[in-house]
Design a protein around this nucleic acid. Sequence first.
DNA 1: GTGAAAGCGCTAACAT
DNA 2: ATGTTAGCGCTTTCAC
Lengths: 343, 343
Amino acid sequence: MPKPAAARRVTIIDVARHANVSTTAVSKVLRNAYGASPDMRAKVRKAIAELGYRPHASARGMRGQTYTIGVMLPSIRNPFFADVLDGIAELLDDAGYQLLMGPGSNGETAEARVTENMIDHSMDGLILVAPVSSRRHLEHVAARVPTVIVGRHGRSAGHDSVADDDLAGAALVVNHLADLGHRRIAHIEHHERDRERLAEMPNAVRAEGYRQAMHARGLDEYVDIASTTYTREGGYLGTKQLLTRLHPPTAIFAGADIVAMGAMQALAEAGHTVPGDIAVAGYDNTMFADFAPVGLTSVDQGGRQMGRNAARLILDRIADPARPATHMTLTPTLVVRRTTAAP
Amino acid sequence: MPKPAAARRVTIIDVARHANVSTTAVSKVLRNAYGASPDMRAKVRKAIAELGYRPHASARGMRGQTYTIGVMLPSIRNPFFADVLDGIAELLDDAGYQLLMGPGSNGETAEARVTENMIDHSMDGLILVAPVSSRRHLEHVAARVPTVIVGRHGRSAGHDSVADDDLAGAALVVNHLADLGHRRIAHIEHHERDRERLAEMPNAVRAEGYRQAMHARGLDEYVDIASTTYTREGGYLGTKQLLTRLHPPTAIFAGADIVAMGAMQALAEAGHTVPGDIAVAGYDNTMFADFAPVGLTSVDQGGRQMGRNAARLILDRIADPARPATHMTLTPTLVVRRTTAAP
DNA sequence: GTGAAAGCGCTAACAT
DNA sequence: ATGTTAGCGCTTTCAC
């Protein structure tokens, strides 16, 4: 059957006619709005079911809500974000909201394109996961549509936020390694120069947490940071750098699990055993940390819970846009596995 | 600054007024449609830039196109899909199309919700990656909106498709292992009972390819399939099953890299070395196959290229909905790494 | 080549 | 509680 002429969509008018009521009545039932008797509701619901009617989101978007939340993900490759997404989806499903995602791709241009696109599509709310955009842009977005920012520390009266206590998370790792007897504990960070992001992005805060924790343990002289990126390549290259030091580290704190993976690759290639020669710890406690041949010690920031909280916040804000901004910080925990041991 | 009253959007009317032309003219320029002089185009473009105008996708959706493609992903956890997505995004960007994603979650209900939602949002085209829905539903979707199906073998006059030659891919693995001298080559499949999916889903075709290739090598008597799921847990459990056999396999062909990961975990726990005791091969050649402590032999089906092709097809079909359906099959290649060796 | 006007499907404001 | 009506911002006839 080649291309059956697209049958006309069932509209609210069809439903109204079928149920012998006004379109307003149908609209009210659709939105569970005030002003429809139980009788009416039943009639309309029946007509909707019989006709297989579905509200046209585009049309809705021109006047009211679309019951759709847009989620911007920085990267689909980092499995941590899958956890966050699961949490968001779980809550949104229950609330009868739809979820559409856009690829942030870790770039300001791409992020702007996605956020604008979502606004153009009349989404009721946006959840931005670990955005790299300028505060200015984020405020500009939040001024136009309810917005929740996940995994970034900048607070604002304009939007809600959910973040991990990265300072504490970094300390968890440093203390664990120091307790094991390590002194030469190095860190691989995602390079950051921008002043704003230096203060707000999780990667920068983790690096700062590393410094503070090293200081607190009296290990200032051993502070050693390889500055690359939160990618597998970043971990690989960072580790190669660290191995060229006059006194190479005995432990590496990678800023993300994916970085730890690259680190272990470099260590394996250089003939070092983990944790025998060098201990490695990551951050995010993704499924790969759990993978046995890896068995990576990692910080769990509860991605799923972060997602659930973000969804809760966006729904609350949609319900009451005037309510004061809420900023949540979750406390991370350390999951010790087999990549860390005494030096 | 708490909640500045959402400033009214710049509309096509504002642009028209600013440029001293009609709204029709602006619309034409926006769509590069016929009937606007170069002069007019310049004037309008200038006004658009000066006012920072952006077309309202919802409004567009009520009459014409939204210039948005919806991509349904079955799982954000399997890194293979990230490759496909990259390919799609690359092409769409260049073509000036937006991309919005929906989570298929490997379930018919979730998939139906996503596809309907995307249609409700007036998306111009849909790319469905490895959908599990019934052929009936897929046809129903394709009848209403241009659709490309990626990674599934069912052909149809109603939609285009891009698939990997999974039969050949499975043979690649079996032949490689047999060439190394293995006879007891077992397979871990994603369990499938549905007749339709048995014929169309990549997992089922890979299992069939395994059987055919074993037969072709005269290894029928060694055919051994553990039927679980394409997840890490599936690989773990499937391997445990295989290890209880009277004659355990000397090589395991996992239907997906993620399955191979679970398999290696089970092997490690059971005290088996890879590839010393048992060889392991995967499918998809994801970044984890490349990860050194793993170094997994895997079949590369060129995810990025599949994504590019899918995007190309959907754009072509949008341009000419009447054009006959195109079905592409990509030939996979084998990437040999360190998890396979002679028994 | 250009513009006026109708209308896409819905919701909000306003009757009744 | 229910219905009537005016748009939302755009594209599409259809005049000129």
